[in-house]
Design a protein around this nucleic acid. Sequence first.
DNA 1: CGACCATTTGATATGGATCAAGCGATGTGG
DNA 2: CCACATCGCTTGATCCATATCAAATGGTCG
Lengths: 230, 230
Amino acid sequence: MLTRTTLRKTPTGEDLARDAQFGSRLAANPLKGSIELMGAPMRFARNEEIYGESEPADYIYKLVGGTVRTYRVLSDGRRQIGAFYLPGDMFGLECGAEHSFSAEAITNATVLVIKRSAVTALASHDVSVAQQLLAMTAQELARMQVHLMLLIKTAQERVADFLLEMAERADGHNEVDLPMSRQDIADYLGLTIETISRTLTQLESSAAIALPTSRRIVLRNRAALRQLNS
Amino acid sequence: MLTRTTLRKTPTGEDLARDAQFGSRLAANPLKGSIELMGAPMRFARNEEIYGESEPADYIYKLVGGTVRTYRVLSDGRRQIGAFYLPGDMFGLECGAEHSFSAEAITNATVLVIKRSAVTALASHDVSVAQQLLAMTAQELARMQVHLMLLIKTAQERVADFLLEMAERADGHNEVDLPMSRQDIADYLGLTIETISRTLTQLESSAAIALPTSRRIVLRNRAALRQLNS
DNA sequence: CGACCATTTGATATGGATCAAGCGATGTGG
DNA sequence: CCACATCGCTTGATCCATATCAAATGGTCG
């Protein structure tokens, strides 16, 4: 299905300019001081694997630019996307000793790669680092809980929820540029691409959204969308 | 739907004998030393609320005897059960400042109630406590991930998974006594009671399980059940 | 321009929900 | 101790939301 390229170990120089727009988000993150200074920046191409499910979880990651998905596949190929990560987000916490999900770049992405052992060592000295680590894991848990609630809703509710969430995270405005494909959305929401597509056109017909292009979504009536989320 | 009784503040003396069988599980838990010594034992009757979604999360809980469910309801009444807890499990970690789920006793239950502030205070001195707190949260996260994967499977797969999980946790043998109703199972698996019931009878017909009574399940063919879990 | 890939749209199929009885166990009051 | 109400579970009949199968459209890149 998906093309898997091999892992590039060294940062390359391309589209740094495009990523620069996200720099401002860095300041907002809790682990701003010590931890991220330890990170080596690394670049991943579109659809490139960042880590694989069941690889040892030796690193944690902070996304600087681009978009990342984590996912898990059942033996028969069904894929569940666990989360989408945007610049400023940390990921790779979702694990014990091994990663339980895989991570891939959805767009070209720049990531700070941080040695887990270094963080835990730091945490054992610095209480605030330990607290931040806990807070991040708890936040991940909270995200998961919301996701769980999504999966018992109807298709309309899931899609509406998804659009509102993305608009929220992509910084509040009414126009969202989705970095991910319909297939990604479908695998996140537990639906099929056809259902995603149909639901979006329904929402467009009911004037809740507009679709200037397939990836660009304008929220025309947030209240209507919210009403769908029981 | 469910009867909500008021919260009993003081431990009562009944069925302590019945709970005693679970005592052996205590030793296996990571937070065995300092933390649980701080806990005040408390008893809850069947269907009694332990805490409510959106109450301040001032306590964490360790189940000593009985069974507990955590859940969340959508405005229209759909309920999603987040987890079942058995003796030895900790719960109430699934939160920021407020609980994001509610918790109720499924059977009469005995719970150690531990002040969160005390734990975090302890964690700031004792690194190992902080680590255990993180580990428990991470485990909760892992449980959630497995649950998420469940919800994209077919009814048969969900039910089979559930039975295997319960058998595993209720200490490995082939005969399981389910403490929860069909409705609880349904709301955990994102199905209806009718589908749960039908699926169980299917599994019985195919000789994968036996149903001596509706709450007692015998795993006759674990391999067959596992095969259903892609 | 032509090939390819993502998306949309249409027609049909189906798994699980919903609606509706029936049944068996448990408990309660007479 | 029995009649009867209640509750949890099972079973049957039908419906419907979403999946599946199939084709058309549109956008992108060489």
